[in-house]
Nucleic acid binder design. Sequence first.
DNA 1: CTCCTTTTTGCAACTGGTTGCAATTAGTAA
DNA 2: TTACTAATTGCAACCAGTTGCAAAAAGGAG
Lengths: 153, 153
Amino acid sequence: MSRHVELVQSLRQAGHRLTPQRESVLAVVAASDRHLTAEEIIARVRQRYPYLNKSAVYRSLDLLTQLGLVTQTDLGHGHVEYELHNHPHHHHLICRHCKDVRQIDHAAFVSLEKKIENDFGFQAELDHFAIFGTCKKCQPRAKIAKSRASATR
Amino acid sequence: MSRHVELVQSLRQAGHRLTPQRESVLAVVAASDRHLTAEEIIARVRQRYPYLNKSAVYRSLDLLTQLGLVTQTDLGHGHVEYELHNHPHHHHLICRHCKDVRQIDHAAFVSLEKKIENDFGFQAELDHFAIFGTCKKCQPRAKIAKSRASATR
DNA sequence: CTCCTTTTTGCAACTGGTTGCAATTAGTAA
DNA sequence: TTACTAATTGCAACCAGTTGCAAAAAGGAG
């Protein structure tokens, strides 16, 4: 059974209808091996299904996210990026100053995830996290303001 | 020296100009003891300074965030919330299903923060984190789709 | 197949936030 | 105090994403 068919079944089993719109959004996301923006998804979907409305795409993506089939990440590029939720887990460190993005793998997050589960019974989606901050290179630039601000903490 | 004056000095020392617009945005944020939306900030600022343009407010808030004086958080309410960066650290667990938000304190994050600093020299702003996921109450509802999706991981 | 109910779509208007650019102004220096 | 220049503002157009609602269609029952 292909990955795609499987995903469609997840949808149906959670009590949602399978419409051609949803089907094609899912197919496009499943066929990509990297982040896609909503704009890219809409363009690809329209190659097969030209009259699809953007709000149906956004609504499908939100639903797929709720079902845990897709992840949404804000990498600070001014839009959200979407991805099938089955690639090796990783996260992103994003510098507020130079906008540089670097990857970090999931290992560092496992203990936090477990703690949240134990303490609150909350299943955190720590699958694709965007962490903002200051990278090594930019730290000198931010230092003056920081040191003042922290004086009263 | 008041908190407000201190913040103004941080601005100046980082090489930025003190304009009446920035001054009043900073004053409004500093005077509040809770999250404010951009809309609330604009409304309050205009009580003193009626013609202030919204883009100046957004630009001031972004600058203050870069300087580490203000935090921005997306709590899934459809807009960002702003707060002075000197309240006791806490984070939020947000359920994707019922939209419930609950607080969690910073202690759970300290080791992650240190690991990121050691491994990458990256100063993460883990001060006001929004973690999406599924709360205890909603887990049964999401379970069917999840179990299928994870079969191929 | 046909009917029915409920979900989903399409649409157009809207929202929060951003951008490019010309006009203005803070800070500095003479 | 005046003049200068780089930083900042105001504006209007724009962008990504959302919403309310009427029309369409999926899935189920008979």
